[in-house]
């Protein structure tokens, strides 16, 4: 029985290292994706808060949930609190997105390298 990929290719130590690196990056890649999605949802919620608060009266106190307690704050302070939170999350999200981009680039390089050598006998897509 002959198939299209009957060339015998053995794995060298360097190949193994590339495969390992790809495995690690793949793991991190999926973790980063979930974290970024979480941050995006949080930002969306905070953005909705800001939009809703525009409609509030200036002198009406706002109840903001921090941890397990509602704090009754004046509108300006509540806005500041939310703004700080947005800035912090945006910063975290940007850092992660940057890491994700780098990982994607490196994974592409490794993918090309490994597919070139092993062809159909290796599967790097999920």
């Amino acid at each position: 029985m002959k198939t299209a990929f009957d060339k015998e290719v053995d794995v060298t130590f360097e190949d193994q290292e590339s495969i390992n690196e790809f495995g690690k990056l793949n793991l991190r890649f999926h973790e980063l994706k979930t974290e970024i999605t979480n941050y995006t949802n949080e930002l969306q919620n905070l953005d909705d808060c800001q939009t809703e608060m525009i409609l509030f009266d200036e002198d009406q106190p706002v109840l903001v949930l921090v941890s397990d307690s509602f704090l009754s704050l004046d509108k300006q302070m509540a806005e500041e609190l939310i703004e700080t939170k947005i800035q912090k999350i945006t910063k975290n999200k940007d850092t992660l997105s940057e890491e994700l981009n780098k990982i994607e680039e490196r994974m592409d390089v490794l993918k090309k390298l490994l597919y070139a050598k092993f062809g159909k006998s290796i599967n790097l897509d999920d």
């Binding site: 002959k2 009957d6 290719v9 793991l27 006998s121 290796i122 599967n123």
Partner: peptide, 15 residues
């Protein structure tokens, strides 16, 4: 943390 496994299947026909 999610674990994604990579699948390897090497086929050798040369004997």
């Amino acid at each position: 943390m999610k674990t994604k496994n990579l699948f390897f299947f090497f086929v050798f026909v040369d004997i």
